[in-house]
Amino acid sequence: MFKSCRAAVLFAAAAFAGANPSFAEEDTLLVVQNGVSESLKFDLAALDALPQHSFDTSTQWTEGTIAFSGPALKDILDAAQISQVEHPTVRLIAANQYEVTLEDRLLEDDVPIVATRLNGQTFGVRDKGPLWVVFPYNLNSSYQTEGVYAASIWQLVEIKIVH
């Protein structure tokens, strides 16, 4: 019940975002293409409008513990109406064209998140921003596998949903 309600909200938000791109082209942070409908574009505000998640963890690519926060990847995909696609495959693409296919089993309701902020601050390309797919690595060992590390793509710019 709650889930469907939440999906409806997300859908409404996405429809709103898709129908009325109220932000400049250069403010676009993320483009989501589902191959069926028009691609969905998110700026920071749009991402902030989604339910926010946060956790503290260290990563092997950074030093010290960092508080990551941002919307769940699942919510973004739902907003892009991933359910409309048969046998969807999610491909995450970085600014340097690094591309990785997300395994289904890694996609949970609130993990990974698409972090928009490190320690409460937005972050730039030089700091692997502005969007970084992160998992709570320290939470348990299931987030310390090569698959998880590979999916932890930074400088995320595009998501393609293909079948």
């Binding site: 950074t62 340097n96 390309v125 030089r126 400088q155």
Partner: peptide, 15 residues
């Protein structure tokens, strides 16, 4: 952009 990416790469690699 490519510089920023390179820059971030150096820090990642250093870490």
């Amino acid at each position: 952009s490519t510089f920023d990416i390179y820059y971030s790469r150096i820090r990642t690699v250093a870490s």
